[in-house]
Design a protein around this nucleic acid. Structure first.
Lengths: 206, 206
DNA sequence: CTAATTTTAGTCCGATCGTACTAAATATGG
DNA sequence: CCATATTTAGTACGATCGGACTAAAATTAG
């Protein structure tokens, strides 16, 4: 049980370090053997800890994996908000949105691969896929950029949910490539992804 | 044990029907509860058969799932070869290539979702992802279309493997949408996918 | 109709799953 | 330093996994 607030510093330190270590072990395990094979035992072994260490800090295995997803996409979302805010023009904002995502993928390879794989593969007890529980809030920034660009005639007009899907799926190309080869060079690929996104949204020639 | 060839008709009939039934049960199970949860018991229950029926017709669970992948992508490949052969011009050939894939996705929803999910999620005993064992032969047709188009100046020049990845990932958008909602209307989406593919490969304006 | 073969359902097996539990070890606070 | 709380490793448990096995049922061939 937690003690008084004054002593929470040290235990918070220990607890945070342990949680981070276990999160990292989960990420590395999913990367190496894949989500379906990432058992508690495998994760614990990689962390150099006992299985009970995981259940002590995380209520269930599911909670641990969802924490990975939350951690990864919260980080990305923050980077995107910051990057987009530096621009006014919709095309520049969209470019910043995509670039920050692809930069994160390039610099946090294990995280993005594990995050995407868990997000795609995990299903709740009811069998409902995890990504179905995604809220509209998650894509709010992208939708705002796209709809603003369409209103200004900078992007061609197409159903917003389609534009969102197209952009997101093109961005996921980078994590997919990393899934094949964690050491892949993403330079050219990321540049092409951005090029295709912007080109695909250009207004039609009249 | 198999008897002489003259009688192989009837037993081949029974065996083929059973195999098809089990393949369909595997596909439906992966669709409903996802690859990680698709156990032999779950597949057998859905087929209305005993577990042993599966191991009788398929050496292992893995063999059954690989058979699903093989069946789906062999079918698609045949459709694509046929569709592409009807055209000479690279852009028309690329359009036919994409259209036949998307048509298959639209008309064989459970198959494409299960095929893609198994292909992406399955790992061999050594932990090696299934799609890493993909041969160059699988994308030979697409690469031929793209390189021919580039030579003729109809597509802009970019590394072939990048162009292949971009096209394939855009085509996978349709199965991904079906994974979210098996009853989704793909009409608009599929049209946009083809539009983005062709637009993204247009030569740059000089 | 009978003998041989194919196919079936059901049982059993060792292994591993996620997690609950226990008790020792460690760290903390007064 | 002692009492208290936190964290640890290790064990145990019921459930389920993929697969081996068996014997009855169904089908086929002569």
């Amino acid at each position: 049980m937690m003690v008084m607030a004054s002593s929470s510093d040290s235990e918070t330190f220990t607890e945070k370090a342990r949680r981070a270590q276990l999160l990292k072990a989960a990420i590395d395990t999913v990367n190496e053997i894949g989500y379906p094979n990432a058992s508690l035992s495998a994760i614990a072994k990689r962390a150099g800890a006992a299985k009970s260490a995981i259940t002590y800090y995380f209520a269930t295995k599911e909670a641990l994996l969802l924490q990975v997803v939350d951690h990864v996409f919260t980080d990305i979302g923050n980077l995107q908000v910051q990057a987009v805010a530096a621009h006014d023009e919709p095309r520049a904002r969209l470019r910043a949105y995509a670039q920050s995502y692809l930069d994160y993928a390039d610099t946090h390879r294990a995280e993005i691969v594990a995050g995407v794989e868990i997000l795609v593969s995990h299903r709740g007890a009811d069998g409902i896929p995890l990504y179905l529980t995604t809220t509209d809030e998650d894509s709010a920034l992208l939708r705002q950029i796209l709809s603003e660009g369409m209103q200004q005639g900078l992007f061609r007009t197409l159903p917003l949910h389609l534009a969102v899907s197209l952009v997101e799926s093109l961005l996921d190309l980078s994590p997919t490539e990393l899934q094949r080869d964690l050491n892949a060079d993403l330079t050219e690929l990321n540049a092409e992804i951005i090029r295709i996104i912007l080109r695909g949204l250009e207004p039609s020639i009249e």
